[in-house]
Structure formats: C-alpha cells, structure tokens
Amino acid sequence: MVTEHGPTVLRVCRALLGSAAEDAWSETFLAALRAYPDLPPGSNVQAWLVTVAHRKAIDQLRAEARRPLPTADLPERPSRDGDPGGWESDLWAALAQLPLKQRQTVVYHHVAGLPYAEVAQILGGTPEAARRAAADGIAALRRTYLNEGAPDD
C-alpha cells in the first residue's frame, strides 16, 4: 500500500500543504494502517487514501489558521528562476495561491487522478461543481504559472 500509493499521496499532500506535507503524509498512512483491515474488499484504495489525506490536510490547515501569523504580507509572486523540478518550484507556489476549493479539486483530479465523481464525494457537492472548480483552478494556473494571457514584462 505504501509503496504503491505513497508517492501519489505525498504529491497530494505537498500540493495542498507545501512544507507541512510530510507530517500529513505520515498521519495519513498511520490512520490508514489503523483503518485498513475494516476497509471493504474491492474498495478503491487510492481514492480512500486521498480522502484520508484530505482530512489530515484540512486539520493541518485549520491548525495553521489558528496560529498567529508573523506578518500580513501577501505571498510574493513566484519567481520563474531556480530549479524547475524542485519542491520550491513555481508550480507548487502557483497551486498554493489558488482558493482552497480550486486547489483541492485540481489536486484530487489532476494530481491524484480521481474522477470528478470521487472528488465530489470527498469534498461534498456535485461532480459538476467539482469539474467547474477544477477548470477555474486550471485557468488560474495557466495565468499565474504559464503566464498565458498575461503580458510578459
């Protein structure tokens, strides 16, 4: 389970949480080990793990929100320099700037590969709403990350 799904779950956690991802990953799999024996046979394990990761990420985001922030500055626009493949890469930074709902739908559908029906189950709402949020998110990523439709300076 860990070997097969570990990398995907870590990508999901990183896309949702950035640097706090590893704790969420560990908590996800610890919770999964606890609950796995009760999982009905034939379940979609990846979708289930993403659901667990989703809850762990929400916990983490809530905890962060309660913590007082040192500054009220908006995050800087990501630079296009540096290692494009690294964890500090623009794509992660661009993802982090999406509204949570868009970020979640984009990550669950495009990074974890879940169909919108599954995404809707995780987030609540309809598959159509999930599809719209993901499309909005992708459009925003195209603007901020790919610089499409924005003048280059």
Partner: peptide
C-alpha cells in the same frame, strides 16, 4: 485535461 502537471516533479 491539462499538460500543466507533466511539469510536476516526481517524488525523490
């Protein structure tokens, strides 16, 4: 679908 995530780094 989108090609954006083909850039996404693999997990080390």
């Amino acid at each position: 679908m989108t090609d954006i995530f083909t850039d996404l780094p693999g997990i080390e």
